[in-house]
Design a protein around this nucleic acid. Structure first.
Length: 210
DNA sequence: CTGACGATTCACT
DNA sequence: GTGAATCGTCAGC
């Protein structure tokens, strides 16, 4: 079976995303495969780094204190849709909405390990060779996979953008929880261990994977 | 309408 | 380690 066909048959169900603990979803997304087929180009990568954003209670979240604006409206969907937004005038960041409708939780995908379509990722990013910087960091992930802010609100049961379980085994001890990156403004919430990484994977962003 | 700034990245010192 | 790039979003007037 072709990889794309196999992956399409193993999409994570809506029930995976609708669970109420956003950290559980963020942790379990480690090792799963994110797939895009925009413009007939098939690219996929294994998720090796995520961050959880715990809705109204989380000062680092766009939905902190119940903020609800045109941009964040997508987060109030039920779990299992994409939330993509534009940052620093340059970068598109890809998130997965979790929990039930009206509870604006989300998981940011910060890094993946390229699996398919590496040539196309090089074209999209303008890089010359496929090293660990290709899909390290949330801006690069979106760029390599061709994800754009226009994809915000996309249902992850779609064939064009989804996440699948290809059977890759991740042991609990190989996942590490650390504080999140770039959220110093969030005060005490910046210290919460809401970032999950696959220990030792070269695509994980930041300095040493501690 | 205006201004300040960000869930970042990359080139350069 | 430091700073520029670059523009949509949002709070405040």
């Amino acid at each position: 079976m072709k990889p794309i066909t196999l992956l399409r048959s193993r999409k994570l169900p809506v029930s995976f995303y609708e669970r109420k603990n956003v950290c559980t979803v963020a942790r379990e997304l480690i090792g799963k495969v994110i797939v895009t087929t925009f413009d007939q180009v098939f690219t996929a990568g294994r998720i090796v780094e995520t961050e959880a954003y715990n809705g109204p209670a989380d000062k680092a979240s766009h939905a902190w204190n119940g903020r609800r604006t045109a941009r964040t409206e997508v987060m109030y969907n039920h779990g299992g849709v994409a939330y993509v937004y534009f940052c620093y005038g340059i970068h598109h960041l890809f998130n997965v909405v979790t929990n039930i409708a009206d509870t604006p939780h989300a998981v940011l995908v910060r890094a993946v390990e390229p699996l398919y379509g590496i040539e196309d990722m090089l074209i999209r990013t303008g890089k010359k060779k496929a090293d660990h910087t290709l899909t390290r960091g949330p801006g690069n992930v979106s760029k390599a996979l061709g994800i754009h802010t226009s994809h915000t609100g996309t249902d992850l049961q779609s064939d064009r953008l989804f996440i699948a379980d290809d059977g890759f085994a991740v042991t609990k001890s190989s996942i590490l929880a650390t504080p999140r990156i770039g959220v110093d403004y969030a005060g005490a919430d910046a210290l919460l261990p809401y970032r999950f990484i696959l220990k030792g994977n070269p695509y994980v962003s930041g300095k040493k994977s501690a």
